[in-house]
């Protein structure tokens, strides 16, 4: 499978995750979101950017509860709960946001 971003074809796996992490550009997230009938706003981007920074530092996509705790610490307590994150990413903040961020599926996510 593949997605078309900025005129380039980027390879994805059967679940829609980018095969090559280095292929990611912000347009990847916009196009993946459009396929899910979602328009990304600043609040989505806060989470996507956070995930990319987390991956850069630790080389893993965090589990949802780790993401929740870390977002609460970094972006404020009112955002560090699963209700807020699921409202932004209804298919699951771990799975969906990581896919938009160009990361692999979170370790431990089935």
């Amino acid at each position: 499978m593949a997605i078309e971003v900025d005129g380039k074809s980027l390879e994805t796996d059967e679940e829609g995750y980018l095969v090559n992490l280095d292929d990611w550009v912000p347009g990847v997230a916009d196009i993946m979101a459009a396929e899910d009938d979602l328009v990304l706003g600043d609040e989505h981007w806060d989470i996507i950017n956070f995930l990319r920074e987390y991956y850069e530092e630790y080389q893993i996509a965090p589990a949802v509860r780790v993401l929740t705790k870390a977002v609460g610490k970094k972006l404020g307590k009112e955002k560090g709960n699963s209700k807020y994150l699921y409202a932004l990413f209804p298919y699951g903040p771990g799975k969906q946001a990581c896919r938009y961020a160009g990361l692999p599926k979170p370790t431990g996510c089935i």
Partner: peptide, 14 residues
């Protein structure tokens, strides 16, 4: 190969 040594620093989060 993947450098997973930074991942040990994430263990505290878990």
């Amino acid at each position: 190969t993947k450098n997973f040594s930074p991942t040990y620093s994430a263990l505290g989060d878990y």
